[in-house]
Simulated assay, not measured.
Amino acid sequence: MEQYLQVGVITSTHGIRGEVKVFPTTDDPQRFKKLKKVFLDTGREKMPLEVAGARFFKNLVIVKFKGIDNINEIEKYRQCALLVDREEAVDLQEDEYFIADLLGMEVYADGEYFGHLKDVMETGANEVYVIESEKHGEVLLPAIHDCILSVDTEERKMEVRLLDGLLD
């Protein structure tokens, strides 16, 4: 399992005092108000940053980091992900999973290997799992109890039921 989980992506700077606009990739953007520490994924390293404050503007979060007080210090980190340590992650309810834990998971149907989970699409009603199958190509599977029988994040396996019409 991944040690770090993404909570947002820096889209641009905000003003000249080192604030950034962050597109939240978490189900609960309000968690930015409680975050004290994040890791900035620069591509080479995961740089720890202390969150000094967060406020909301439209669908973005404006974040200020402690010790970064100039636009020039933060501008180079556009499009970089903000991560939290798994220990800082929100508590999940039953049958909820972090997307990072699902990606790449082996998928089985009727006990036979079917493919691997390639992506998760978030729709209004429910998530849709994109499964890459050698035999059937890309298969879209709704993440509902009728289709998803079991998920084992430790073993990285998922057992599914293919409802009639899903492979057509």
Rank of each mutant, 00 (worst) to 15 (best):
129 Y>K: 00
40 L>G: 09
125 A>M: 15
79 Q>G: 01
70 N>G: 00
114 F>C: 07
163 L>C: 11
58 K>P: 10
29 P>R: 05
160 V>D: 15
81 A>L: 04
70 N>S: 10
161 R>S: 14
116 H>K: 15
87 E>Y: 01
27 D>W: 08
12 S>E: 14
49 L>I: 01
37 K>Q: 13
27 D>K: 11
35 L>V: 06
155 E>V: 00
49 L>H: 05
152 D>S: 09
48 P>N: 05
29 P>D: 05
89 A>N: 04
131 I>F: 04
56 F>T: 14
149 L>Q: 15
132 E>T: 02
101 D>E: 13
156 R>Y: 02
70 N>F: 01
44 R>A: 09
10 I>N: 10
60 L>N: 11
155 E>C: 00
21 K>V: 11
76 K>D: 04
15 G>Q: 06
119 D>Q: 13
62 I>W: 01
83 L>V: 05
3 Q>N: 14
98 F>K: 03
37 K>P: 03
121 M>D: 15
68 I>P: 01
65 F>L: 04
126 N>G: 06
125 A>Q: 13
102 L>K: 00
133 S>G: 07
159 E>P: 07
68 I>C: 01
149 L>Y: 04
154 E>L: 00
14 H>T: 08
137 G>A: 09
21 K>L: 15
84 V>W: 06
39 F>W: 14
118 K>N: 06
24 P>C: 02
129 Y>Q: 07
153 T>M: 01
25 T>I: 00
138 E>M: 07
117 L>K: 03
25 T>H: 04
70 N>R: 12
78 R>P: 05
118 K>E: 10
